[in-house]
Design a protein around this nucleic acid. Structure first.
Lengths: 119, 119
DNA sequence: AACAAATACATGTACGTACATGTAATAAAA
DNA sequence: TTTTATTACATGTACGTACATGTATTTGTT
């Protein structure tokens, strides 16, 4: 996946943030909202956004209501690149993961057994 | 695991390198030997070793036979810290992963199905 | 209202991965 | 034997995680 995303100039986490933003669009999201929806919780969200803003895939403005907030939304360019890359990623996933439904369920369950032990 | 290793001043990868060195001790190993035995192949081995040498857990000398080589071995301090941390790690793993043998085999098989699809 | 606590970021460090490139030493080829 | 290729490593960049700390800006308390 990382290899494919690189063709779009994205990292895994940047892609993740774009997806999250699209999920809420056209609403704007603040850093905390985004962080809360990330798979791997990260303290790095502001810097990931920095990079997306630099690439003009995300727009960032100040929130008048709460000046601690900074609010983000996808640009048209961001939406476009997200759709192209998502298409490619889904295609890849289809090719790679060909488990039967019951195998997938079983895998999930076993991983869950381990995960449950995490402190 | 990372959390526990931190108590010993080690990262996951540093711990990994110490284990690899112990596996060959008292023989010395060059960077390539170590890299070849790492779980996650990494181009970063020289720098991981740098940090271990700084902490005096690993000794590094030049190889007279092949001057391109640099050869590493555990110091006594390195061996000590490795044994202490390994003891703790094994204890943790025992607590965390309590799958039956057949469940473990099944998990392995399912992950293998996915892994086999990687290009 | 004044002050303390919490919130939302921003930013810094240490260290890791992935990748590209540089360099000395050795091995292979002409 | 001289050139070329390969090897083994060192080093640089971009970016990620984990963690610690700083700083406005709220919010809650007295």
């Amino acid at each position: 996946m990382s290899r494919e995303l690189k063709n779009f100039g994205l990292t895994h986490e940047q892609y993740n943030v774009l997806r999250i933003l699209k999920g809420k669009s056209p609403d704007e999201m603040c850093v905390k909202d985004i962080a809360g929806r990330m798979i791997e919780k990260s303290s790095n969200v502001p810097r990931i956004i920095d990079r997306l803003v630099l690439k003009k895939l995300v727009k960032r403005t100040n929130d008048a209501n709460d000046k601690r907030h900074t609010v983000m939304s996808l640009t048209v360019a961001g939406l476009n690149i997200l759709e192209l890359s998502t298409q490619r990623i889904n295609q890849l996933l289809d090719e790679m993961i060909q488990l039967t439904d019951s195998s997938a369920a079983q895998l999930n369950e076993l991983l869950e057994q381990i995960r449950a032990k995490e402190s």
